[in-house]
Amino acid sequence: MEIDSAPDPFKEDWDKTVVSWYNVQEADVYLTMAGIHDTLTLGSGQGLYCLLNIGDNNTDGKDEIAFVVDYCDNSRVNDCRIYSLCNGKWTMLLEFGVHEDAFNFTSDTIPYFSEIPDFLVKQNGAWVYKDYRQDGWDKPEDVGAFKKISVSDCNR
């Protein structure tokens, strides 16, 4: 039976109530697609911060997806993963670091994130990204600059 409600992390103690509740449930996050038998298991967590269709960046005729898992951990550093279906199986094409501050909000309701502010955005019709974990650059002007998504297709 699917979990459809959980302790509110905005009202409850994170460690004592929220994390321990998820640990008791042994909750796992999955992505499912009708007609595809390969279910993508993403491990123990609350859900996803975002789930995006970022288009066909490797021109293989299929759209890629990008998502960030909302893990039950105590770190604000996380990863965005880009996946594509390769011969009926989900395959990770790219992974880069993000900071969860990108998902902060001040509204009463949780907003829908159509991009990851400061980390994965659409510029001039193309998706670009910044890797929070990157700590070295070739040129000074590259520091903090967005990079075009370059991912191979299944056959390369």
Partner: peptide
């Protein structure tokens, strides 16, 4: 303990290259 409804995200697109619209859904299971 305040319970909140978990957000269930889904996304649409052509993910298998058959030219048709597909949907991917996120679920959280115990």
């Amino acid at each position: 303990i305040y319970l909140r409804k978990l957000s269930k995200l889904s996304v649409y697109g052509d993910f298998n290259g058959d030219g048709k619209q597909d949907s991917i859904c996120q679920v959280t299971f115990p």
